[in-house]
C-alpha cells in the first residue's frame, strides 16, 4: 500500500500543488484538504502543510492559519502518531500550533531571500532524512522573509542533544540560531523546514536534491501501520 498524504490548503497557500506533485511523483496518494474542514480524510499517514502566504501573513506568519478549523484535526492526528511535514509557511504554521518549538522571525538582513542555499543533513534518524547520508551537502531553494529561527538556549540545547536538528544551512542566509534550517518533533514524526524540497525534485528545477526526502518518506511509511 502506498503512503496516503493530505495537503492542507489555506487562502494564500501557493506551494500546495508543488508539494502534492512531489509526493505523487514519489508514489504517494495525495488528497487536498481545504482549511475549513474539521476532519481529515480517513487513513492518512502524512499531513503536509505547504508554503505560501496563508491569510496574507497577517498578525504573524502562520498565526491565523494555525487557528484554522483543520489545524485542530492536524494537531490531534500528530498527537495520535501521524506524520507531519511543514514547508516554509507550513513550518511557521506548525510552530504557531505548538507542534514544533521556537519561533520564526524576520530575516536578520530584513530582506526576502529567494535563492538556492547549501544545506547539511544533520541527522538521518527520521523518515524524512533517512535517504540521505549524515553530513551530506544538498542544494535546495529558500524563498522567505521570516525564516530566522529563534528559540531560548534550553530549547536549542534540547534540539541538539536529542538530535532533532534535521538540516542546517552551510551559509546562514537569515540569522537562524545554530544555522537551523529544519527541526524534528520529539517523536521525530514531524519535520518543519524553511527550504522548499518540493521545488527541487526534477533536474528541470535546477536540482533534484529534494526528491530523496519524498522517496525516503514513501519508502519508510508505505505499508507501515503508522497510526496508533
Amino acid at each position: 500500500m502506498s503512503l496516503k498524504a493530505g495537503v492542507v490548503v489555506f487562502p494564500g497557500s501557493n506551494c500546495d500543488r508543488d508539494l502534492a506533485v512531489a509526493l505523487r511523483r514519489a508514489g504517494a496518494d495525495v488528497t487536498m484538504i481545504w482549511h475549513k474542514e474539521t476532519e481529515l480524510p480517513a487513513g492518512l499517514d502524512l499531513v503536509g502543510v505547504p508554503g505560501g502566504f496563508s491569510f496574507g501573513d497577517y498578525l504573524r506568519c502562520g498565526a491565523i492559519a494555525a487557528r484554522a478549523p483543520i489545524m485542530r484535526a492536524v494537531v490531534d492526528f500528530v498527537h495520535a502518531g501521524g506524520y507531519g511535514l511543514g514547508v516554509c509557511n507550513g513550518f511557521q504554521v506548525l510552530i504557531e500550533t505548538g507542534l514544533l518549538p521556537g519561533a520564526l522571525m524576520r530575516n536578520a538582513g530584513l530582506r526576502f531571500v529567494c535563492a538556492p542555499v547549501g544545506l547539511e543533513v544533520a541527522t538521518t534518524d527520521s523518515a524524512f532524512t533517512r535517504a540521505y547520508a549524515r553530513g551530506e551537502r544538498l542544494e535546495i531553494p529558500i524563498a522567505h522573509h521570516d525564516g530566522n529561527y529563534f528559540a531560548d538556549p534550553e530549547t536549542l540545547a534540547a534540539l541538539a542533544d536529542q538530535d532533532r536538528i534535521a538540516l542546517r544551512y552551510t551559509e546562514n542566509p537569515n540569522g537562524s540560531a545554530a544555522d537551523i534550517a529544519g527541526i524534528l518533533s520529539e517523536n521525530r514524526r514531524v519535520l518543519g523546514l524553511m527550504p522548499h524540497p518540493e521545488r527541487a525534485v526534477d533536474p528541470a528545477h535546477g536540482g533534484a536534491d529534494g526528491a530523496r526526502m519524498f522517496a525516503g518518506l514513501v519508502a519508510a511509511l508505505s505499508g507501515e501501520a503508522v497510526r496508533a
Binding site: R60, G102, A151
Partner: peptide
C-alpha cells in the same frame, strides 16, 4: 495568550 501575541518571543 491564544492568538494576539506569540509568547515565545
Amino acid at each position: 495568550e491564544k492568538l494576539l501575541a506569540n509568547t515565545v518571543i
